[in-house]
Design a protein around this nucleic acid. Structure first.
Lengths: 129, 129
DNA sequence: GGTTTGTATCGACATTCATCGATACAGCTC
DNA sequence: GAGCTGTATCGATGAATGTCGATACAAACC
């Protein structure tokens, strides 16, 4: 398993219904703690670039050997950052032969994205035209 | 002024064109540093709930007096967190009489949201509808 | 089996961060 | 002006974080 799990991105409604944007209602404390762990994982430039490199890599996955090159930090540091992303649920990893391949977890990114989504036209009375 | 600034949310295209999702191409280092500061600001449960409270408050704004109640932390701590959100560009503040009102900066949230947006159908071979 | 290559863990260190109490500042009301 | 209320800043402190070199683990290759 875990390889054949390629589900369509916004399609799994187990997670899809979870996240109305936070303009609609205030987050409760437990949701906030959960989401904050994910945002915190994104709160480092190296990790952000790592995620971007993984997401934009061909096939949607990249091995660690592809990721250590573009940075000025050491290999243990890259490994540490990947672990943070993995434990936040933003990426998953799989070992194939000598290499470990990382790929993004689309549902996690979609959850954060939709949380930050803002109503395009709030129809809030005074703001009209 | 500054009160009449209520522009429609996703409408200002000055920032709207900035952000192709990071699946399309890897972020460069300076963009990543900029974005990481914003995500880091979201990486705390108190700040996330603060932002949510502000965004969901009627009129799209809330005074600090509305924000200190729901938390177990002290008033200076709330003030500190609001400062972090403000310096990250996620909220703006305005003083009116005794009270200071905070409101979200929609363009900032939209930028982060669209960055995390994932291509709805990557045309990955098998996954098509 | 020994060696080599790719990745993760360990221990240490400097820096940043979240939090607090005390206090200062801003603006209202009397 | 005096006092009051709402908010921000200051200084301190314990905890978390990013980084490194050294080292351990995993899998291939000879």
């Amino acid at each position: 398993m875990s390889k054949s799990e390629l589900r369509i991105l916004g399609q799994d409604d187990t997670d899809a219904a979870c996240c109305s944007p936070m303009v609609r209602e205030p987050l409760d404390a437990s949701d906030a703690a959960d989401l904050a762990r994910m945002f915190k994982a994104l709160g480092d430039p190296v990790r952000l670039r790592l995620l971007s490199l993984i997401a934009s890599h061909e096939g949607g996955e990249a091995c660690v050997c592809d990721l250590t090159g573009p940075f000025d930090v050491s290999q243990p540091t890259i490994s540490h950052h990947l672990k943070v992303l993995r434990e936040a649920g933003l990426v998953g990893s799989e070992r194939r032969a000598n290499w470990v391949y990382y790929r993004v977890v689309p549902a996690a990114l979609a959850r954060l994205s939709s949380l930050l989504q803002i109503a395009p036209a709030p129809a809030k009375g005074g703001v009209r035209a």
